[in-house]
Simulated assay, not measured.
Amino acid sequence: MKRTTKRLFSALLAFVLLMSVTACGANTAADGSAEEGSKSADGFPEKQVTIIMPWSLGGGPDTIARQIASYGEKYLGVPVIVENKTGGAGTIAMAAALQAADDGYSMIVANGPLFSLTPSFQNVNYSIDDITPLIGMREVEFVVLSNPGKSGIETLDQLKEYAASGKTIKYATTGGPGNDSYTMISVLFKRLGLPAEAVPYDGGQDAINALVGGHVDIAIGSPPVYRDYVKSGELACLGTFIPDGIEVDGIGRIPSFKEQGIDAEFIGMDYFAVRSTVDDAKKKVLTEFIQNVYADPDFQKFMSEMGMKAWDGTEVEILQKIDEQSKAMVDYITLLE
């Protein structure tokens, strides 16, 4: 009887150990990096996930998206890549995202103007109902910059003197009509009453490169692309469209155009989205993946070193901002028509 009891106890112990090992295996991938909580009930994702990027290499959203993608194996269990599809003020990328299968394997980095601004300048075949915002990426802090060594412009007053000398100001923008940077810097020159000519580029880094090279007099950019140039003294900040001004690490405070008496203000945003018809469980997996990256200390350090901060806006917050932006843009659109 005792021997039988021992055998039953041994069998029970072996069963408990087996279940314990199995449970551990369910929480950790073979390489010990990806947790099962990162996947949906049907095992999604099982293959590479693509982030469609409307803007070129090296710009703010591209830089952030590529860093997030590098955590794919760690937090999603599969590779994540970034695919740039530039042009058309973001509409080419939007078309690609809506043509992709609605299986959750394609995300897009979108911005507010794709819905609040671009449709006023271009015929588009999409609406806000075609996508579901998953989570915010960043709030966009556009700054207008000059190259004092090439143009002698370091302040708004010097910009006005430059124009008063009979010169037409050439300014670099990221994209053409319908793009937020193009619109806001064009509004600035309209408000100032200065002769200016837009020179569109595919991305923020391209615009800054043109300014550094002296091919344009003025450019617009966000902290990741201009920060080091300003810190070195090669470029100067004339102002920002953020109403309260901004504080940038290594540079200091940049005053707003509103503070300088110019009616031109704008707070932009970038965010991750998928087709609205993607299964809700898959949307949740992708959102949690990005949330996990945002919470990662190494990612937070990366963002801090770039002078940026991740914005974890929810679907509701993003849609609300797009609605507010649409109303605020009406006057600017009229001004530029």
Rank of each mutant, 00 (worst) to 15 (best):
E83G: 02
A41Y: 10
V49L: 09
V16H: 00
A11G: 05
A26P: 01
E36F: 01
S40H: 01
P45V: 08
G88P: 04
Q48L: 12
L12E: 01
A11E: 04
I68L: 06
W55I: 11
I64S: 02
Q67P: 00
K47D: 15
L98A: 11
S33P: 06
S56T: 13
I68G: 03
K47P: 06
A97N: 10
A41C: 05
A97L: 15
S38T: 02
A93H: 05
P79L: 09
K2S: 07
I52S: 07
S40L: 00
T86L: 02
G60S: 12
A69N: 05
A93W: 07
I52R: 04
V78M: 07
K2H: 14
G87H: 05
V78I: 11
E83S: 15
L13E: 03
N27L: 11
V80S: 03
P45K: 03
I92V: 14
E46P: 00
D102F: 06
V16I: 13
A29F: 04
P54E: 10
V16K: 01
G88S: 08
F15D: 04
A100T: 08
L76T: 04
E35G: 07
D62P: 00
G25F: 14
V21N: 05
M53D: 08
Q48D: 13
P54D: 12
D42E: 12
L57G: 09
Y75A: 01
L76I: 06
G87T: 01
G87E: 07
D42L: 07
A95E: 15
A93Y: 03
L17Q: 09
T50A: 10
Q99H: 05
E35R: 06
G88K: 01
T86I: 11
K47A: 11
A29N: 13
R66K: 14
G43K: 14
G43I: 09
P45R: 06
E36N: 09
L17F: 15
Q99L: 05
T86D: 02
K39W: 02
D103G: 11
P79E: 07
T50H: 14
F44Y: 09
A41H: 07
T86P: 02
I81C: 11
E73Y: 05
E36A: 10
L76P: 01
A100P: 08
Y75S: 02
A69R: 09
G59M: 00
P79A: 10
E73C: 01
A26D: 12
Q67G: 05
E36I: 13
S33N: 13
A34D: 06
D62I: 00
S70R: 03
A100M: 05
S20V: 13
P54R: 09
G32F: 04
D42G: 10
A41K: 13
A101G: 12
E36V: 10
A14N: 02
Q48N: 13
K85P: 00
S38H: 03
P45G: 09
F44L: 08
I92T: 10
S38A: 11
M94T: 10
M19G: 04
E73R: 07
M53K: 08
P45T: 07
S40W: 00
E46S: 13
I51F: 12
I92F: 05
F44C: 03
V82R: 07
S56A: 15
L18M: 15
L12P: 00
K47S: 15
V49S: 10
V49Q: 05
A29W: 03
R3T: 14
F9C: 11
L98R: 11
L57W: 12
S40T: 08
